[in-house]
Design a protein around this nucleic acid. Structure first.
Lengths: 187, 187
DNA sequence: TCTATTCTATCTACTAGAAGGTAGGCAAAT
DNA sequence: ATTTGCCTACCTTCTAGTAGATAGAATAGA
């Protein structure tokens, strides 16, 4: 793995654990054994780093979504796979999804990062909407709104569930909430 | 208003707007025209301040919840009042609920604050559960889980909806999401 | 092929500013 | 006479970021 990849990956974890304004170049430097000046060489400003973190995260995330879509499962199973993905994201150290973290920090961030964050919301909402539409048509799901609207509240609910699990350091809060949310739209 | 109240109120807004690790005693001092040392007199450490912010917020919030409960409205109307309250919290400058902010920052905070944050979740979940139970019994609501479980996912969803509205700086995202979430549990 | 140059990735050393926090003084209120 | 509430002045540590040196790899020209 190249240094710049190591930097991105380390920054991603620190962002997920502590938030954008709670980690420093010094933290990264200690974790990967490199001087802060070297990090500035790869990512001149912290905002550059933040943008790159979200950009890479989006790409990786979209690949996983594609894989879930591609498998010949029922829409329900695909939705469950999605929530399982969130559960893995949180891991055992109560990491948030980076997008959730950056959303609280958003008033302190430049547009370059803001756009990546919004893009991540849209990536997920678009994907969820397609699954929901499929499930609505073949009678697996039932809801009294458009798939687009339902996708929005679903993704927001998932993010909120991660947040509350983090608050209590209780992963069961996440997994059980995710299950119950899905139940609300099951036919 | 006393100085310590002014400090709390200013810190509350800054917390809601930018997060715990993105405002300083200096920010507060500039806003209310007082030196940072004077803020330390009232709140020796930033953690003391953070705890007091959440404690006051909880008290005020519980008073509003009590008022909503007391009015002789249907459980549906009470739930709508609750979501209207969240909408007011967000205001026109996309403030998050302080509890949502502190939850992302939580890994950098002491137990004293953590407990207040968890308390805020429980305050809301308890209140929501009672409304949900009432509505379930008289047939206004319909969901296939316990009122406690439903309260958890409902509050998480609301927090998530605030988050997404903040990400897009779009209040309509909040209000419309809140409406649709309620729709999911309406009989 | 040998040499000169340029590029890459790191380092040391430094800066200016901001952070949270402390010590001690002072005037007004109790 | 003591407490309250604010002040000035200061401290230490951390922050993001810069300048300039260096060693090695890649590249280009003779």
């Amino acid at each position: 793995m190249t240094t710049s990849e190591q930097i991105i990956d380390t920054a991603t974890v620190l962002l997920q654990k502590h938030g954008f304004n709670a980690f420093s170049y010094s933290d990264i430097s200690k974790l990967i054994g490199i001087k802060t000046a070297s990090i500035h060489y790869h990512y001149p400003s912290k905002y550059d780093l933040g943008k790159s973190v979200m950009a890479k995260y989006r790409i990786m995330h979209k690949m996983v979504l594609k894989k879930i879509s591609a498998e010949s499962n029922s829409p329900l199973k695909k939705l469950q796979d999605f929530t399982y993905l969130l559960s893995c994201t949180m891991g055992k150290d109560y990491r948030m999804c980076p997008c959730g973290m950056l959303t609280t920090d958003i008033s302190t961030l430049p547009d370059s990062i803001k756009l990546e964050v919004q893009g991540f919301y849209l990536d997920n909402e678009t994907w969820l909407a397609s699954i929901l539409k499929e499930g609505l048509e073949n009678g697996v799901f039932k809801f009294d709104m458009s798939p687009d609207e339902c996708a929005k509240i679903l993704f927001a609910s998932f993010e909120g569930a991660m947040l509350s699990a983090r608050a209590f350091e209780d992963k069961n809060r996440l997994t059980s909430s995710l299950k119950q949310i899905i139940k609300l739209i099951q036919a």
